[in-house]
Amino acid sequence: MVRARSLLARFMPHGPWDVVRQVAIFAAAYLAYRLVRGGIDGRAATAFENARSLIDIERGLHVFVEPSVQAWASGSGVITDVASWIYLNAQTTVSVSALVWLYLFRNSSFYFVRNMMVVAMVLALIGYIVYPAAPPRMFPEWGFQDSVAHFTGIDPDQAKVSALFNPYAAVPSMHVAFALMIGWPLAKLVRWRALRVFWFTYPFLVTFVIVVTANHFLADAVLGAMVAAVSAYSAAWLARARPEAWRFGRRSAELTA
């Protein structure tokens, strides 16, 4: 019994109800994010016009390298398949696993990351409403191919805008935002140097993935990084209100909400 209590205290430092509370917060936030994201009027014509504007901006800045990068990667089925797998799992398997690890083993920093991600989802929804944009895969005239569709055998663009899906929600790239909000905190918290290097470079890997799979332009990635930066600042500001609970790397064992 003593050992069981010790293990429970280690893996559930604030008790089982806090676990339920955190799962409920993330589930509610993500469901609301998906519902609002999918429920936004697709405005296809505007989305394509906005995406073409992004292409024009990148061409004007001489950074429109996405077609060349995907063409290079397409020469290897291994690269495109691995990139497609990472794209499909980055925001689900990887992010969820990282959050679980944070809660269990670096609980003092979990709540800061949680606050960042909730703020980021709100900011992303504003972006989807204000600036709907089609992803690169919808521009075959530029040589783009949907690597994820080839990998899975399912064409997502055949689906209509629904309560949980909107193909014109490309700005900002939340793959990049999530990668930053997960990767860089973990780079500070893990002990092994190799893992620190991996998590520090993880956002750059995800940026490469979204370009190779033709799901985002580089401009989307930059805007996703800006969302992560604003969310981190917001989480730091929130931590001033409850430093004992929401500060990154806090050492207090008091109950959090």
Rank of each mutant, 00 (worst) to 15 (best):
M1H: 13
R3I: 15
A4D: 14
R5C: 14
L7F: 10
L7V: 10
L8N: 12
A9V: 05
A9K: 10
M12S: 12
H14G: 14
G15I: 09
G15R: 06
G15V: 09
P16K: 06
W17E: 11
D18Y: 14
D18N: 14
V23W: 11
A24P: 05
A24Q: 04
I25G: 00
I25R: 10
F26D: 06
F26T: 08
F26Y: 12
F26Q: 09
A27K: 05
Y30I: 09
Y30V: 08
A32F: 10
Y33W: 13
V36L: 14
V36M: 13
R37Q: 15
G38E: 01
G38F: 02
G39R: 02
I40W: 11
D41W: 10
G42F: 09
G42H: 05
T46L: 15
A47T: 01
N50D: 04
A51K: 01
S53W: 15
I55N: 10
I55G: 07
D56H: 04
I57N: 02
E58C: 10
G60W: 05
L61Q: 06
H62G: 02
V63C: 07
F64N: 03
E66Q: 14
P67V: 00
S68R: 11
V69L: 09
A71W: 08
W72M: 09
A73V: 04
S74F: 07
V78C: 03
V78T: 13
T80G: 10
T80M: 01
S84N: 01
W85M: 09
L88N: 12
L88I: 11
N89L: 06
A90S: 14
T93M: 03
V94D: 02
A98V: 01
L99S: 04
L99N: 03
W101C: 11
Y103P: 08
L104V: 08
R106V: 00
V113W: 00
R114C: 10
M116L: 03
M121H: 07
M121T: 15
V122D: 06
L123A: 03
I126T: 06
I126E: 11
G127P: 09
G127T: 04
G127M: 10
A133W: 02
E141A: 08
W142F: 14
W142S: 14
W142N: 12
F144N: 02
F144E: 05
F144M: 01
F144I: 01
D146K: 04
S147W: 08
A149G: 13
H150Y: 11
I154G: 04
I154M: 12
D155F: 12
P156D: 04
A159R: 15
L164C: 01
P167G: 05
P167F: 01
P167L: 07
V171E: 15
M174S: 11
F178E: 09
M181R: 00
I182A: 05
G183Y: 00
V190T: 11
V190K: 04
R191M: 11
W192D: 14
A194E: 13
L195S: 08
L195G: 15
R196T: 04
W199K: 01
V206D: 05
I210L: 07
V211E: 09
V212T: 12
H216Q: 06
F217H: 13
L218T: 05
A219M: 15
A221N: 06
V222C: 06
M226I: 14
A228I: 00
Y233A: 15
A236F: 04
A236V: 08
L238Q: 09
R240F: 03
R242K: 15
E244G: 04
E244A: 12
A245E: 14
W246A: 12
R250I: 03
R251K: 15
L255Y: 06
T256W: 11
T256N: 08
